[in-house]
């Protein structure tokens, strides 16, 4: 079935993974920087600033520190970008793109979403720098804390969707989107609001944005795992994080609010939704809140989002 392979390759490399997600993620990043600047009464950089930064980094040279594991150090960013490109191809765009089932179901996606964090840990420890090691331990701690709310929120949605489909649990994102387009978006169902809140609170930590940018805090641990990176390798890590913002925000929209009309307008509505989530969910917190300490952040996640996630799951199950 070479046809299918070509379609899959196109999905991963060009649309909606790969190039499209890269460009869109960088635009979202630029939008975020500009929104934060406006909230702080600054002018801010142009929207295409992230593109310029990435291009510049690609034009510089990569330095490999002494005492590092060169293989892991140089290949970890590539793995992160590859994982995120595949993950982006698995995100459905309501009314416009339905991911092929051959790519894998939501479990694969959930594993892929954790890959950049793991890569950051690997990169931090492979660089042989003590700051990288601190970044490693912080990333590990906060990852353990935010994975809980994510899984609880996703499982709650999957169970509700599965109920509508007559299965115990719906593990295909395409099915979840299809259910919502028949029954109405889950964002309108008050029983799923706790799960929605849990998911929203998971976004900034996963994307490494303030107030949860603790592993990459530039003033405390000198950007932690990124400390020893320079040039194209750093550019790839930045690309991976731009891709990740598309994946995480796109996953949230697919889970709760896939309302776009069919055709090209669906893509437009989806992009608009992504922009709104970026500005309201990420930029607002970035502009308003300072960085938490690692213990505060972990406790915060183990307390509120975790509770919300459990409440969301219980409500969803009780309501079936």
């Amino acid at each position: 079935m070479p046809d299918n392979i070509l379609t899959l390759l196109f999905a991963v490399l060009v649309f909606p993974g790969g190039l499209f997600a890269l460009a869109f993620g960088l635009i979202l990043r630029g939008l975020d920087r500009r929104a934060v600047a406006r909230m702080q009464r600054r002018v801010g950089p142009p929207l295409i600033q992230p593109f310029i930064d990435i291009l510049k980094l690609m034009g510089k040279r990569t330095m490999v520190p002494e005492g590092s594991n060169t293989f892991v150090f140089l290949w970890a960013p590539v793995v992160a970008v590859a994982a995120m490109a595949v993950a982006a191809a698995m995100i459905p765009i309501a009314g416009f793109y339905r991911p092929s089932a051959d790519l894998g179901d939501m479990l694969v996606l959930l594993y892929l979403v954790t890959v950049p964090a793991v890569v950051l840990m690997l990169a931090g420890s492979a660089s042989g720098s003590p700051f990288g090691a601190i970044g490693f331990s912080r990333e590990m701690a906060i990852m353990l804390a935010y994975e809980g709310p994510l899984l609880l929120a996703v499982v709650a949605v999957a169970m509700v969707a599965g109920h509508h489909l007559g299965q115990p649990i719906a593990l295909s994102l395409a099915d979840i989107v299809a259910v919502q387009r028949q029954q109405g978006a889950f964002i309108l169902d008050p029983m799923l609001w706790p799960a929605l809140l849990a998911y929203l609170s998971f976004i900034p930590a996963n994307l490494g944005f303030s107030p949860f940018d603790i592993p990459e805090a530039e003033s405390e641990v000198l950007e932690g795992p990124l400390l020893e990176y320079s040039g194209p390798a750093l550019g790839l890590l930045k690309l991976a994080s731009a891709l990740k913002s598309v994946v995480v925000i796109g996953l949230g929209i697919a889970l709760f609010c896939p309302i776009g009309p069919s055709g090209g307008a669906g893509l437009l509505v989806w992009a608009l939704q992504c922009a709104v989530v970026t500005v309201c969910g990420v930029s607002l917190a970035k502009a308003a809140l300072g960085r938490m300490r690692i213990d505060q952040a972990v406790l915060f996640y183990l307390k509120w989002p975790e509770l919300l996630g459990i409440a969301g799951l219980v409500l969803a199950v009780a309501n079936l």
Partner: peptide, 11 residues
Amino acid sequence: VERLGCQYCGS
């Protein structure tokens, strides 16, 4: 300075 494309970096 961000409008010049500048960014303070930690490393």
